[in-house]
Amino acid sequence: MAISGRLLKNGAYLQSSTTLFVFFAGWGIWWSFFAVWLEHGLGLSGGQIGTVYSVNSFTTIVALLF
């Protein structure tokens, strides 16, 4: 990432970058282990984990459309 001095003086760039950094960190801190948590933490079967993912995808589409 080439970051020029002018860019670092742009308050909107800094605000937007901070937001994205914090958002993705707040997601990555648990999401990368979501499937492991469902299986090893809660003892769900593969079919049940699949159901969680299917229904999540469905409501995500609904939220994307509206």
Binding site: M1, A2, I3, L7, N10, A12, Y13, S16, S17, T18, L20, F21, V22, F23, F24, A25, G26, W27, G28, I29, W30, S32, F33
Partner: peptide, 23 residues
């Protein structure tokens, strides 16, 4: 506000990567 979106989004990937390291 005139900045390159990719350069802001890159910080998002960095955030995900840093978090994943400790997760």
């Amino acid at each position: 506000y005139g900045f390159a979106y990719g350069q802001a989004r890159g910080w998002g990937s960095l955030g995900y990567g840093v978090a994943a390291l400790f997760t």
